[in-house]
Write a protein that binds this DNA or RNA. Structure first.
Lengths: 332, 332
DNA sequence: TTGTAGGCGTTATCAC
DNA sequence: GTGATAACGCCTACAA
């Protein structure tokens, strides 16, 4: 690895000049610029980011926090964030906290690594203290919590209301909810939105039809499968089910099929997130669409703006109900 | 952010002593150790990794290269790698090269960032030069290519032979292959294995039944869907299809259904990777199982060993055929 | 057992 | 427009 000094030597200029052509921090004559570039090329010189970070206190390193990378929803956010970040010269590390299994050290490590910015694509109360430390440590964070600075969030309210309305109009009255998580978690807004939506439609909230997740609260295919089995073991008196995400919905569909229940003839199913798989299911899963890629991009852009002293607007994107073949009229 | 100096001051010791208790590089009396730890705690001190990196030339930063993070196969590798890495004090950045859309800069950036190690979970010829540079830059790399140092790979051969044998025994003779990529890519071993497997079974390799992918070669659900449509447009004279991965298989299933073809009664379908979704399909997708989590863990362990001057063994894991409801006897 | 000092590769502030 | 020089925070001989 050749260093800046060697490049300067090869180009016959000072080290400072090399830096200036690299960073564009000062005018350098075209001729010298050329010589320097050539020297860089020939020497195969690579700027040492660690050194730069030490000097500038900026690492060009972003972090994304998700709760389950295996959920394509987050994979998509991660991919978009990464793509946008790379275009802006940043690298991103995705931290997969297994929900509720969260350890503060993961965040402290981020501080230690001088991460410039942080996007919380998932949110749990228990990480608040750590995130607060991160803020104090100078890390810019973007999340759904105004307490941490700028906010980028998605609101499910309207979509869930629309969805419940759609089901109600199809004659459904007893709608189950597969939570995946604990409905006691304060930030678990989908459950709150669902309750509200029922209220709006004048439908009852039936406790028996609410299935809580089990620790460690990984809302995945298996969780959906087991949640539905639990529900079916409890009662069959429901005609529609809303799952906290598409994975849970798809898992639930399997459990329903195994019990000989037809979708949507017997039970209508709705998921959430609109992962690509949803439309490849048989029947195609009705779901709630959220702008996953946009979130990743926006988060990156916002962080970029903040880090460069520009302003950035807080944003709340809105989800949209996406109907599908997995819902139908209430069975006569 | 308090620095080491402040900790030293607070603990009434020298900076060197602080470092030694942090790194365990020298014996420090229990008493002083205690004082230092307390001071660290009180001051909320976080070691600056950039500074350490500059001094030691080690970043504690690993990278994983995949071609499509949205493919749960890679998400799983990424998650496992990350988990193992964190336990060892490393952080990992996952780089999603969109296959064949690869740009060398991504790798050069890794060099610039003093990444200690690199795991190529995917492989394409076009990145060879860049990876070579990474090696020269001192980055330890693990991949399927011995040229780059240690190897960690998975062999599909036996699994594919078993799979074709299974299909042959069920009476299938005309087996299609949805490549997703270009079959001309030298490293695209699944295609080679498939050809070999046909040979072993004495089955013909039918050019018409081989569907090449389209640039930019993202072998995902849509690609599978379109590949199958293309195949169906070409001929219906096949009774089984092997897809390069589960996503392609699932996409193909949709196209088949749309044409009124039943799975497995009319067409048997086999995927590859054994992503969790496979078993949640209707019918459950026969596939080829690969140890995804194990690969992520192993790669990390190997890198860790190498980086710490230990030896590590090259490993080739073997895939296994996993039957499923998506295959059945040749339709009479 | 503990402290001192030089250096890691860049940036940034100054004179030149 | 260009070139020295002092940080940046930490590690690590080497000295005490």
């Amino acid at each position: 690895m050749s260093k800046r000094k060697e490049v300067a030597l090869a180009a016959g200029v000072s080290e400072a000049t090399v830096s200036h052509v690299i960073n564009g921090t000062k005018y350098v004559s075209p001729e010298l610029t050329m010589r320097v570039r050539k020297a860089i090329e020939e020497k195969g010189y690579r700027l040492n980011q660690a050194a730069r970070c030490l000097a500038t206190n900026r690492s060009g390193h972003l972090a994304l926090i998700v709760n389950n990378l295996k959920n394509p929803r987050y994979a998509e956010v991660a991919e978009a964030m990464q793509e946008e970040a790379r275009a802006k010269g940043y690298i991103v590390s995705t931290i997969d906290i297994n929900l509720f299994n969260f350890t503060e050290d993961a965040v402290f490590d981020l501080i230690s690594r001088n991460v410039d910015g942080l996007f919380l694509a998932t949110y749990i109360d228990s990480m608040e203290p750590a995130i607060k430390r991160a803020c104090e440590g100078g890390i810019k964070v973007i999340s759904g919590n105004p307490e941490f600075g700028h906010i980028l969030d998605v609101s499910y309210r309207k979509a869930i209301v629309d969805m419940v309305k759609c089901l109600a109009e199809l004659g459904h009255e007893r709608i189950a909810f597969l939570s995946g998580y604990s409905t006691k978690e304060s930030k678990h807004t989908k459950y709150g939105d669902f309750c509200e939506a029922l209220r709006v439609q004048g439908l009852p909230l039936i406790r028996e039809l609410i299935v809580e997740g089990e620790p460690p609260y990984i809302a995945d295919l298996d969780a959906g499968y087991h949640s539905m089995k639990e529900l079916l073991g409890r009662t069959r008196d429901f005609t529609a089910v809303f799952a906290v995400n598409d994975l849970v919905a798809i898992g639930a569909m399997k459990a329903l099929r195994e019990q000989g229940l037809r979708i949507p003839e017997d039970i209508s199913v709705v998921g959430c997130d609109d992962i690509q798989f949803a439309s490849y299911m048989e029947p195609a899963l009705a779901t709630i669409r959220i702008p996953k890629g946009e979130m990743g991009m926006l988060a990156t852009d916002m962080l970029y703006d903040i880090l460069n002293g520009n302003t950035c607007e807080d944003t709340v994107l809105t989800a949209a109900f996406q109907t599908g073949a997995s819902i139908a009229k209430h069975p006569a």
